[in-house]
């Protein structure tokens, strides 16, 4: 991975950043090979913190409201050691240890077309709401 900074935080992560710059340079250099000898220029833009900005949209107004209330539902019953979740379109809760039990990553064989370098666009029936971003 390409890192913007080698210093690691308390959780062991170094700050990622810079892969876009490398890809842009390589794409420009390689473009002529696939474009009859004529170079294509590249606009390189890091979206970065801009995607964190502004007011919450509909889902990020509704789901946090529900999660907050769900947390209180549990507390009022004296239940703890849980994490509130969305599962199969329903609000639910799981043991909090699930957070550290595994990693949630894109399922490549099911969702990513490695020949075309983009997602697959097939077999949507009964797929979860957020597709590959849902918990499998």
């Amino acid at each position: 991975m390409v890192f913007a900074d080698s210093e690691k935080d308390a959780y062991g992560h170094a700050k990622l950043g810079g892969i876009g710059d490398l890809v842009s340079t390589e794409l420009k250099d390689l473009s002529a090979k696939f474009n009859k000898g004529k170079t294509i220029n590249v606009i390189n833009q890091k979206l970065g913190y801009m995607v964190r900005g502004g007011d919450p949209d509909a889902l990020d107004s509704i789901v946090p409201m529900a999660y907050g209330n769900l947390a209180l539902d549990l507390i009022l019953k004296g239940i703890h050691g849980r994490i509130v979740v969305l599962k199969n379109g329903r609000y639910d809760n799981l043991p909090v240890e699930v957070v550290t039990s595994s990693k949630k990553l894109v399922n490549i064989p099911e969702y990513y077309n490695t020949e075309r370098l983009r997602p697959y666009y097939h077999s949507f029936e009964m797929k979860p709401f957020l597709l590959m971003a849902s918990e499998n």
Partner: peptide
């Protein structure tokens, strides 16, 4: 006594389909 709420624009907290912040990130 902990009751956790998942949040990340990356949507990669295990166990849940949805983490707070993901939708706005995709929207932006």
């Amino acid at each position: 006594k902990v009751v956790a709420i998942p949040k990340t624009m990356d949507n990669d907290v295990p166990g849940t389909d949805y983490c707070i912040g993901f939708s706005t990130c995709v929207t932006r």
